[in-house]
Write a protein that binds this DNA or RNA. Structure first.
Length: 813
RNA sequence: GCCGGAAUGGCGGAAUUGGUAGACGCACGAGACUCAAAAUCUCGCGAGCUUCACAGCUUGUAAGGGUUCAAAUCCCUUUUCCGGCACCA
């Protein structure tokens, strides 16, 4: 590739910035807080494949923002690190016997080299990996706080278990219900697991979404995930048993339409109330349900299945007997694990009732007293019918009255239910943070003392799972067997490790004070830097990472350990970069682009600018090799022009001066959108196209152009600054920085003349130039002079004239 | 199945949020330079039609309908694609 020598220039300036500490922050906390900014990327998992072209998309956007704000006088914290615990390193270790820490370090080195080759302005003095003991010491410390406050608890929870590999497998490793490695159908097993009580924060996680500037679709996803719904728990006594079933419903108004009850197959009452004649059928059905995942239970079987228990419940208001069924469309962990089925007004109940020939009773009508044909359920609100003294009431009113009545009878009460479930926090894996708990037969779960942290992973030589579903750690007897710190009896360490989400729940706090060995971060530094002002990453973290991190943050907030209610004020997502064939990049499709190749051939500046020019940040867009060449040509033209143009001119021609000011305004505004980088770059192209007609321009103009360019293409800009600049580099260490970003003059942006579109009955027929701000009558008179317009106006009656200042005049005939 | 998002030239995308559709770039075509090619520069480039030409007409933003002086933009119906999913009572 000819043109400017990108390899030489990029290396030179990357070394300069690093040596000069150009990317550091000022640690002087008296620097005004309103001029500090925390701009963060979601840190990557350093995979063995190396950097993907999708990573630099978000990183370039935040780099542009960081450089832009620094050039405007801000103190910008812009760090990078590694989320390095996880499955791939462990699976690789099982295959190769190479310790995950070695693979991880190698991958981190590769990622670091690749990211540095793109010239991002990260402050590398603050980097760390979640696998560093100095870091996960504090992850464990926070876990102990959860334990101390009763928010970490042990309970039975299901795992996917492969009976052939004799190991637990992650959801990701289950393909079509079978183990990814051996193809054996995966079973579900209940084992003792640690859970974090995220449900205790459900309402606050929901309500505080109001406080943050996040994309609406992400907020909606979190709201739906938390899934708060208000309704009532209603008690049904069971006929011939001294037992009762509590159901949750959001439609208490439909209670007179309940014709049967359904329990989740796992419901504890099932065995008790199943009559002897039905035992076999119920048992068989429970067995079948056991190995179905929620996904299968909920999406695959359109055909409803179930079994009759043989028992009947007593309707609390009508006294009628309702048969009790079990069915897998009822999930134990939602609501009470039991429902009253109202087939006339619920689709799932309708399907079930149709299949099992159960009665369907209409109790809601769209209009008062109107009956509808029940070939499908009526799920809308309306007016109650067939509901005793409640008939005639509108839906919401009716529900209220019925709940009041049930409360009076002590047969029900208002209730709120969430879809959100507690977070299963243990994994039967090696490569994660060890859970700092000792299990003593007498004292139960005994936490390690804070001074005993970090609890390191023991070195082992076989990473194969233990074979009984427990972690490989359980094989390391020298590590597992300890004395109970409380009573001194023989005890065992917890062998489950934390999930890979743990480390990413608080890493943004650590960046504010990354080398602190007394606290996870000092309150002083946190309160200066937090919250994160701008957080950029992929949409795939919409619920898990972003919800878990918010949960930890709120927990720490309650303990007075952090200073803000929310961690991330503004969130933006980057879109997917697809392969040239418009499909997701993957090895198997053979459409993967390696960033190294692009940097080598075209240079980092071209790569960065191309990714920003592809389209708005948040949309997904396909890679196109030809288009990169266009960006490279643009940078070559910039290089040629600014190394040859004379800088002696006094001023620019007025129209180009106007364009310059417009460009400064537009680019600044586009950058701040965190989206429209493509149009910012096109504005720079338009300006260059005009400047190229001039042999001489003022030095000040060249400086403005290069400074604007520098946030997108820092290396070439820094190089050209040597020619047009003031003797000092653009990007300097905090104390040496100046506000270099050019300002624009609003009064010099206004055009003197504007083009009016002349429309006849809404169709454009001609255009005329008029002075800006011309009055309606003048425009009308000028327009009528045009032969083109006269042609249409003669023999026609003008009904009305629509005039839009500086835009159009429309003659409606 | 449910929820969310999207659909604009050969391609990526613009469009002041209801006001001249197609900015900018790619690809392509013609020309200049060259012995030639590459690179570079200049011009053209939604489709169809009329015209020697200047120019003009029709049509066009997934499809169909509607609101409006005016719709890529707002409303209704439909189709396709992408993302998410936990049958959530």
């Amino acid at each position: 590739m000819e043109g400017y020598p990108h390899q030489e220039i990029e290396k030179k300036w990357q070394e300069f910035w690093e040596k000069n500490e150009s990317n550091r922050v000022t640690e002087d906390l008296s620097f005004p807080k309103e001029k500090r900014l925390y701009i963060l990327d979601m840190f990557p998992y350093p995979s063995g494949e190396g950097l993907h072209v999708g990573h630099p998309e978000g990183y370039t956007a935040t780099d542009i923002l960081s450089r832009y704000y620094r050039l405007n006088g801000y103190n910008v914290l812009h760090p990078m690190g590694w989320d390095a615990f996880g499955l791939p390193a462990e699976n690789y270790a099982i295959k190769t016997k190479i310790h995950p820490s070695i693979t991880t370090q190698k991958n981190i080195n590769t990622f670091t080299r690749q990211i540095k080759s793109l010239g991002f302005s990260y402050d590398w003095s603050r980097t760390f990996s979640t696998t560093d003991p100095e870091y996960f010491k504090w992850t464990q410390w926070i876990f102990l706080k959860f334990f101390e406050k009763g928010l970490a608890y042990k309970s039975k929870a299901p795992i996917n278990y492969c009976p052939s590999c004799k190991t637990g497998v992650a959801n990701e490793e289950v393909v079509n219900g079978c183990c990814e490695r051996c193809g054996t159908p995966v079973e579900r097993r209940l084992i003792d697991q640690w859970l974090l009580k995220i449900t205790a924060y459900a309402d606050r996680l929901l309500d505080d979404l109001e406080l943050v500037d996040w994309p609406d679709d992400i907020k909606t996803m979190q709201k739906n995930w938390i899934g708060r719904s208000e309704g009532a728990n209603i008690i049904f006594d069971i006929d011939k048993f001294n037992e009762r079933i509590e159901v949750f419903t959001t439609r208490a108004d439909t209670i007179f339409g309940a014709t049967y009850l359904v329990l989740a197959p796992e419901h504890p009452l099932v065995d008790k109330i199943t009559t002897s004649g039905q035992k076999k059928e119920v048992l068989d059905y429970k067995q079948k349900t056991l190995n179905k995942s929620d996904l299968e239970r909920t999406s695959l079987n359109k055909e409803k299945t179930g079994a009759f228990t043989g028992s009947y419940a007593i309707h609390p208001l009508s006294g009628k007997l309702l048969p009790i069924y079990i069915s897998d469309y009822i999930l134990m962990h939602y609501g009470t694990g039991a429902i009253m089925a109202v087939p006339a007004h619920d689709e799932r109940d309708f399907d079930f009732a149709s299949k099992f020939r159960l009665p369907i009773v209409q109790v809601v009508a769209p209009e008062r007293d109107m009956a509808i044909s029940l070939d499908k359920p009526y799920v809308e609100d309306g007016y109650s019918i067939n509901s005793a003294q409640f008939s005639g009431l509108p839906t919401s009113k009716c529900a209220e009255r019925i709940i009041e009545e049930l409360e009076r009878m002590k047969k029900g009460k208002r209730a709120v239910t969430y879809k959100l479930r507690d977070w299963i926090f243990s994994r039967q894996r090696y490569w994660g943070e060890p859970i700092p708990i000792i299990n003593c037969p007498d004292c139960g779960h005994v936490p390690l003392k804070y001074e005993q942290l970090p609890l390191l992973l023991p070195l082992i030589d076989s990473y194969e799972p233990a074979g009984d579903g427990t972690s490989p750690l359980s094989k390391v007897t020298s590590w597992v067997n300890v004395k109970c710190p409380k009573c001194g009896a023989d005890a065992k360490r917890e062998t489950n490790t934390m999930p890979n989400w743990a480390g990413s729940c608080w890493y943004y706090l650590r960046y504010t004070d990354p080398h602190n060995d007394k606290e996870f971060a000092s309150i002083e530094k946190q309160s200066y830097w937090m919250p994160v002002d701008i957080y950029v990453g992929g949409k795939e973290h919409a619920v898990l990472h972003l919800l878990y991190a918010r949960f930890w943050h709120k927990f720490l907030f309650d303990l007075g350990l952090v200073t803000t209610a929310e961690p991330f004020m503004k969130l933006r997502n980057q879109g997917l970069i697809l392969g040239e064939n418009n499909q997701r990049m993957s090895k198997s499709r053979g459409n993967v682009i390696n960033p190294d190749d692009i940097v080598k051939e075209f240079g980092a500046d071209t790569f960065r600018m191309y990714e920003m020019f592809m389209g708005p940040l948040e949309t997904s867009k396909p890679w196109n090799k030809n288009s990169i060449g266009g960006i490279r040509r643009f940078l070559d033209r910039i290089y040629d022009y600014f190394t040859s143009v004379s800088l002696d001119a006094e001023s620019l021609p007025p129209d180009i001066d106007r364009l310059l000011h417009k460009t400064i305004k537009k680019v600044g505004e586009d950058i701040e959108t965190i989206s429209a980088y493509n149009t910012a770059i096109s504005a720079l192209m338009i300006l260059l196209n005009e400047l190229q007609n001039l042999e001489s321009i003022p030095r000040k103009v060249a400086q403005s152009y290069i400074v604007i360019l520098s946030v997108f293409a820092p290396h070439i800009a820094e190089e050209l600054w040597g020619t047009v600049g003031d003797g000092k580099p653009i990007f300097l260490k905090p104390g040496d920085r100046e506000v270099l970003w050019p300002s624009y003059d609003e009064s010099r942006i206004k055009d003197e003349t504007v083009t009016y579109a002349i429309m006849i009955s809404g169709k454009k027929r001609a255009t005329i130039e008029m002075p800006a701000g011309a009055n309606r009558q003048d425009v009308e008179n000028e327009a009528k002079k045009l032969p083109m317009v006269q042609k249409y106006l003669e023999n026609a009656h003008i009904k009305t004239i629509i005039f839009v200042q500086d835009k159009i005049i429309n003659f409606v005939l």
